[in-house]
Design a protein around this nucleic acid. Structure first.
Lengths: 184, 184
DNA sequence: TCATAAAGTATCGACTCGATACATTTTAAA
DNA sequence: TTTAAAATGTATCGAGTCGATACTTTATGA
């Protein structure tokens, strides 16, 4: 008997439920997650290798899944100028449309309603759990540009910034997007 | 851009991480979950249909997964006396041994450490989220015998009880086990 | 009794995913 | 500058996932 703590047990059950729900509209769980990542990632991070790192998948799975998404015309691939090994991924209009029917919206609704009703924000605890796990596994935690050590706000221009690592200018949208190069 | 709330996003990422970690020791995620369920379930609930309902899988997946677990000698199947359609599942000694190396122990460690450090118990909020989702989907929430409407404590005998639905006596271990028939 | 429901099995097809091998291109080192 | 090592992505294998569908056997209830 025995087993895991109540919270762990609930996370396991929620994880299963999330997997179960993620088969909607003819897409597979991983395909949904790739679409969600592409919606959130900045332009330096919309590549197969960033998807691989973020979702902790194998290169093979990502390559296959991207082919499936390309066939469904939800994502396009283009070569990157400057590095001929790389591909740049873009959500098509159909891809964004698909995200409007994201089955995970039900989870989001439940989470928002529970947090509002209980006056409790679980994100701090969950973020700590995720960081702990990723650190133990040696993975990167990722994060949005604005919180990165390479982030340099442009003095005078509100919302404008620069990435000191890639030496690229960042608009307001970039600053709030997920970046593979994020370094806390 | 935009997307889900921070908490939802973290639950999605944790779910992915949990899936990724669940490939240890030659078992697949679902196989691990079946082993965990069998460790927690009472004797009325160690059947393929209970596994199917609890994990929200299809009968086909459960049937296949149980065959795999039986081949690995982690689980045994026996016919049930009284209903010749049913099978009773039992964790073998090797199955319990396998659970000693459960990759989800890492999550449990992280959860316990974070909750202790922050003095925060997330189980209430997570339980509410899970209930909300299950209710919306029409699924049962399950639960342990002791909290069931059919639970009848045996007056005088500490820990002894009876199930009014199945008309069976329950020992202390049964009372704390998950039951498919659980009704809040 | 007899239709219906429930418990499991079997099969198909698309996808997941670790593992391995491979072709290109880039980067760093000698 | 040539060369070795690393990085990006693809291709293939094998076991498993999982919705869908069809089927068998056994219980149950009108």
């Amino acid at each position: 008997m025995s087993g895991h703590s109540p919270t762990t047990h609930l996370l396991e059950r929620l994880s299963r439920l999330i997997q179960n729900e993620a088969h909607a509209h003819g897409l597979k769980p991983v395909q949904w997650e790739i679409l969600r990542f592409l919606r959130l990632a900045n332009r330096f991070s919309r590549t197969p290798s960033a998807v691989t790192a973020y979702l902790n998948l194998t290169k093979g799975t990502v390559s296959q899944s991207l082919n499936a998404l390309e066939t469904k015309q939800l994502v396009t691939k283009e070569p990157v100028t400057g590095d001929r090994r790389r591909l740049s991924l873009t959500l098509t209009a159909a891809g964004r449309e698909m995200l409007a029917g994201d089955p995970m919206d039900a989870l989001d609704t439940a989470v928002r309603s529970v947090e509002a009703a209980r006056g409790e924000d679980m994100s701090g605890g969950l973020r700590a759990v995720l960081s702990d796990l990723l650190r133990r596994r040696g993975g990167r935690a990722f994060g949005v540009c604005r919180t990165c050590r390479h982030y340099r706000p442009e003095p005078g221009a509100a919302g404008q910034a620069r990435c000191a690592l890639l030496n690229e200018t960042l608009g307001p949208a970039d600053s709030e997007a997920i970046c593979v190069e994020h370094d806390g």
